[in-house]
Amino acid sequence: MQKILVGLKRVVDYNVRIRVKEDGSGVVTDGVKMSINPFDEIALEEALRIRERGDASEVIVVSIGEEDCQQQLRTGLAMGADRAILVQTDQPVDPLAAARTLLKLIEKEQPELVILGKQAIDDDCNQTGQMLAALWDRPQATFASQLELNGQQAKVTREVDAGLEVIEVDLPAVVTTDLRLNEPRYVKLPDIMKAKKKPLETLELSALIDDAAPYCAIGEHAAPPQRSRGVMVNNASELVDALRDKGLVN
């Protein structure tokens, strides 16, 4: 295999406690730590392991968004990606626009495998990989917890509600990652220095796709309704009594 393309989205770090702005216009992102979407980090780790096994020659990381996405691409390069592409725009990019953009890069780069996170932890959409596979007219293997390459095919174990589903897909294909696929490596300081010398190409979104108007207009943001603290009981029989009062157990 020649190339693997990996998507890296810049998102609010998963450890940050999300707060909705008082005017409801969004969530607070000023001064908040930003990171690579955790599922995308798993995607990159998987691509790197495939290359390190000798099953691929190049790993390209791509991000779509504002100039600051360079930080996440540099982290991806420090993890071990060979080169990076930033598709720059100041406008919000929804999953369909992201898929159309990635398709343009695929046409140019001709990767045999595209690995994306199953969802981004900001908008929680879980759409881009599936949409890309549709537009590319290629197989999709979503929610992957195991990926085995076998010549021009891949065998993928998928985490589904009913258990584990195994499918086989012809390459090229789109794979989206679930949490158990692997544990991403930590970046070492010398790698951060080396990453500064790796190529990072910047393209304008408008040069790749005509119209990135989002599918839906995002309106008011609200904090979720809170559950309140209930009652404390002292022992098991009081608990059973309380449940019987509510008609929840016999």
Partner: peptide, 15 residues
């Protein structure tokens, strides 16, 4: 719909 793992609820309108 919920975003940020349910830590915010957002209103979305389709044209």
């Amino acid at each position: 719909r919920p975003i940020y793992a349910g830590n915010a609820i957002v209103t979305c309108s389709v044209a």
